[in-house]
């Protein structure tokens, strides 16, 4: 979009009416959360990754999920589409799953069950429910919009030797957690750690970015984990074969592709 001079003048006039910023003001917590959100969930115009998820219960027993995930951003920071093709475990192999994410409304989700050739649109009003039985919720996978919470910069400190902002976020509406504390790396501008507190204000879940690499020019969390400290259950997710800006088109995110997935996903 191109703005002419009159638009610029109007913008300048609008800015003049705002109160002057205080000298050496601390960084805006909401702006930091927005930037971290965009870096974490909207890198590039699209992306693709092999995902290996390992869930460990309190007895140390593990379960695995392997799938490939494709993403395309319709609007940076806004609507996105996701396509998932499952490889493991065996009973969900060839199953596909599609999400049209809409931060302003309920997502639309579809699942395809190949054994019965069934495409089912599934109810998606609870973004806090578990993704494939892991410690991650749907919202953790595709990102909770920063606009759903109010943010406050608590302090700046080092986390494992990395300079970070520490921000507390409180949901604007009643949610599955009452507050979240996020450590955002100053250099990567990615969330490095998150603590979720439950209704009794007790620590319930801890997210960690365990490995960060630069892929295709984008700082990327290539290994992350979520631990439910109350249930002593954790999920580790490893991303491999990450690619960005592949030129993924919108027609991948359709019923046709649920039934007949792109061949480069199937022939793993």
């Amino acid at each position: 979009m191109r703005f002419g001079i009159p638009a610029l003048a109007a913008a300048a006039a609008a800015l003049m009416t705002l109160p002057a910023p205080a000298a050496a003001q601390a960084p805006d917590a909401e702006a930091l959360m927005k930037q971290a959100h965009l870096n974490m969930y909207y890198a590039g115009d699209d992306g693709r990754s092999m995902v290996e998820m390992t869930m460990t219960d309190k007895r140390g027993k593990t379960r695995n999920r392997t799938f490939v995930m494709l993403r395309r951003d319709t609007v940076d920071g806004g609507e996105q589409k996701y396509f998932t093709y499952f490889y493991e475990p065996s009973d969900v192999r060839r199953l596909t799953f599609m999400v049209w994410k809409d931060p302003e409304a309920d997502d639309a989700r579809w699942i395809y069950v190949p054994a019965v050739d069934l495409v089912k649109q599934i109810s998606a009003n609870d973004k806090g429910s578990s993704f494939v039985g892991s410690d991650f919720s749907y919202e953790d996978v595709s990102g909770r919009p920063w606009t759903d919470d109010t943010h406050e910069l608590l302090r700046e400190e080092e986390l494992d030797g990395v300079a970070a902002y520490v921000i507390q976020s409180v949901p604007k509406e009643k949610d599955s957690f009452t507050r979240k504390v996020t450590w955002i790396g100053k250099e990567s501008m990615l969330p490095l750690k998150e603590e979720y507190y439950d209704r009794k204000d007790e620590l319930e879940r801890v997210f960690r970015s365990e490995a960060v690499e630069t892929v295709g020019g984008y700082p990327t969390v290539v290994r992350r984990s979520m631990t439910n400290v109350k249930k002593n259950h954790s999920t580790t997710v490893e991303f491999a074969e990450i690619e960005y800006d592949l030129g993924v088109t919108d027609d991948v995110f359709t019923e046709r592709r649920l039934k007949n997935p792109p061949s480069d996903l199937v022939s793993k």
Partner: peptide, 10 residues
């Protein structure tokens, strides 16, 4: 009509 009433209750 299908709805999720509580987490994982449809």
């Amino acid at each position: 009509w299908e709805k999720q009433w509580l987490p994982d209750l449809n």
